[in-house]
Design a protein around this nucleic acid. Sequence first.
RNA 1: GUGAUUGUAGCUCAGCUGGUUAGAGCGCCGGAUUGUGGUUCCGGAGGUCGCCGGUUCGAAACCGGUCUUUCACCCCA
Length: 458
Amino acid sequence: MAQKPSIPKGTRDFSPTEVAKRNYIFFTIKQVFETYGFQPIETPSFENSSTLMGKYGEEGDRLIFKILNSGDYLKKVDEALLVSKNSLQTTSKISEKALRYDLTVPFARYVVQHQNDIVFPFKRYQMQPVWRADRPQKGRFREFYQCDADVVGSKSLWQEVEFVQLYDAVFSKLKLIGTTIKLNNRKILSGIAEIIGEKDKLIDFTIALDKLDKIGEEGVAKEMLAKGISENAIKKVKPLFSFKGSNQEKLNQLQELLANSVEGTQGVHDLRFVVNAIENLGLQSANLELDVTLARGLNYYTGAIYEVSAPKNVKMGSIGGGGRYDDLTGIFGLKNVSGVGISFGLDRIYLVLEELNLFDQVELPKPKVLFLNLGEQEATYCMKALLKLRKHQVKSELYPDASKMKKQLNYANRRAIQFVVIVGTSEMENKKFTLKNMQSGEQQTCNLQELVDITTSL
RNA sequence: GUGAUUGUAGCUCAGCUGGUUAGAGCGCCGGAUUGUGGUUCCGGAGGUCGCCGGUUCGAAACCGGUCUUUCACCCCA
């Protein structure tokens, strides 16, 4: 046997069953997106490197798949540069394109490029694969789908409320009960950093804080100290580590803590607006939880921050996330366009639904009727009947080869096909069909019209 | 990028401290049974033991490298 073929690390093939299940999730999300007034767009799989590089931080740049230039790409590279073995600089010379890393940056590019044709506020959704040169592990792949919905051109907090509802609507529809939508606001984080006098260390501070539930109080304190945050400052944030109570209670505590910070106070106000609205309107199956430790790595969030975690009995990283970015299009030259958006991680949602056996209602596309093939004349006779059945939307097929009946019936069994039609010389003479129910084993003789009636009604 | 882990037939896996021709179950193909399946019985095909190198009289097994799988960290969906 030849060398077994393989696919690259972190990529997957999908079987008919898996595709059916994935489509079910796609379809559900798409439906909710459209119900909420979002319109679909698509962008290319790869972008100019300059569009992507530098937008996701140092870590992100490392994870971007670069596409080698075509042609004799080394020819133009300076000899000294090659000898220097400087990967970073050489890469920019031999690669000018890169695979999409997420859907938000390409969207920002899209908005700037098509700003004259877009009606603002622009609500778009996008469900496409993205690629990351990550080491794969549980729920982490190198090719995966994101399903994003974003609104640009509005600072309204109502949008932030709607995204919470949208999350709730999708997961409820998928029967995924008990998800937690975590909510925070970047202004709160800035406010805290300001209050403790470490405003310039905001990023380090938030990254450390984000790890609270993973490495605990001690770990966070240690990491903050390592990043140069003063002991005094850490003492001041300590109360946040054991932040308990209802969302309203947390808001009240925050308000007090951040009273001397203009930005922090604004953050509390924004959060309170969303929390109050949701409490007023209600959620179907999700929980809304204020979480001040929620930071998320992406540098461009400026307001609301969302993250969705699966029901508590499932061990899985976040299945969705998002937030507000006041100036994302700014890097592409369009100022003062605020955007807020969320993302669903299709592949992780799939894993969660699979683990909880929530795919039971997903039907595999399969034929309902199989015509056995007993010879050339019989097949011709069957093909005529097939034409009519298919006209009536009955999923049906003819076994392609005149194989043994045992083999053909076995095929029907394997594919769990409900009906088999048997046509031999006697049926042809009488212009009839023998219809066999594969579950009960019962058979009946019928004419073409009856065949259509029976198979369309059952 | 760091640290572990995995790889034997199409699939799931056995294979002892290195020792004849590497096994099982399931699946596949054929027959019992030329127009009636899921059961049963019989037979058959299918493996450079991930790849490359090393140690050895001898390697699926030991050593090194590499790729792959899975997992944790980092980061993230």
